[in-house]
């Protein structure tokens, strides 16, 4: 972790009509920092990280990402947005691989179409990424032939092929069968070790404690607590964070925990 702030969120607010998703959210992410965002369902964790690459517009506040400035209720210019997005990778809860393209074509599409890199060079890098994930044999297959865990690892390769400076993970393991969660978490852990800056929405508390530098607890439409991962998870300072963690760590008692026990939706 260094002192350069690469994502600076200030006073962010988002609402759908009258319904407030979150309000007054501020968060600075430093280079190589791993930030895990946790909190009850529906509190706007996913919406928050989707604001970072402007997949969701927001209503007030500002976000500065790698020097690009996003402002509430102002539509950013399309070229600026494309440039920002080409430098910020994203992995989705539902994988969102392109089903009509092979695994390899999924990975090389971005570098070829966005960065205009030669196919041979991009293919080589894609195969390296697949090899790193142990998926070389899957290169010519269509995504639907792969298990959920494999699909999500391909999705990570697809994002990494753009050589992003920041990675956003939107509940990357919540759609996976329990026995497939580990392989995806392992891939993310490796990325963290290599010094990738990451914003990660997750329900995996142990993983957050293990991999994240910083944990952010969202509750009641805003950031309830943020701090070093171990400290926040082991001895939370605020009542809202304590209440949430109590529920998650005693699964039988909460809907959030119950969902985890069933192993996904």
């Amino acid at each position: 972790m260094s002192n350069d702030v690469v994502v600076d969120i200030k006073g962010l607010a988002k609402h759908f009509g009258d319904r407030v998703v979150f309000d007054n959210v501020s968060l600075a992410v430093h280079k190589s920092e791993v930030v895990a965002i946790i909190g009850p369902s529906g509190v706007g964790k996913s919406t928050l990280i989707r604001c970072v690459n402007h997949l969701h517009p927001f209503n007030a506040g500002t976000i500065d990402v790698l020097g690009y400035h996003l402002q509430g209720d102002v539509a950013p210019s399309k070229p600026m947005l494309r440039e920002l997005r080409s430098r910020v990778g994203m992995v989705f809860q539902t994988f969102n691989l392109f089903p009509h393209l092979t695994v390899l074509d999924n990975i090389i599409l971005g570098p070829i179409e966005v960065k205009r890199l030669p196919r041979a060079q991009v293919t080589e890098r894609a195969m390296d990424l697949l090899a790193m994930m142990g998926l070389q044999q899957r290169a010519q297959m269509y995504p639907k032939r792969l298990s959920g865990g494999e699909q999500q690892r391909v999705a990570i390769c697809r994002a990494l092929a753009m050589e992003p400076e920041i990675m956003l993970f939107d509940e990357p393991t919540s759609m996976l069968d329990p026995e497939l969660v580990g392989e995806v978490l392992e891939a993310i852990r490796r990325l963290a070790k290599q010094g990738m800056t990451m914003l990660l929405v997750t329900h995996e508390m142990m993983f957050a404690k293990d991999v994240a530098d910083t944990v952010v607890v969202m509750a009641d439409h805003t950031v309830a607590e943020r701090g070093p991962a171990r400290q926040v998870l082991e001895s939370p300072q605020t009542e809202r964070a304590r209440a949430f963690l109590r529920r998650v760590l005693n699964p039988g008692l909460s809907s959030d925990g119950a969902r985890r026990q069933r192993g996904g939706v």
Binding site: L84, M90, L97
Partner: peptide, 18 residues
């Protein structure tokens, strides 16, 4: 076509036409 497809493509930085 599911919205996730467009989102994934947007997130890569592809243009609307592409």
């Amino acid at each position: 076509v599911p919205t996730g497809q467009r989102e994934a493509a947007d997130a890569l930085g592809l243009s609307s036409l592409k």
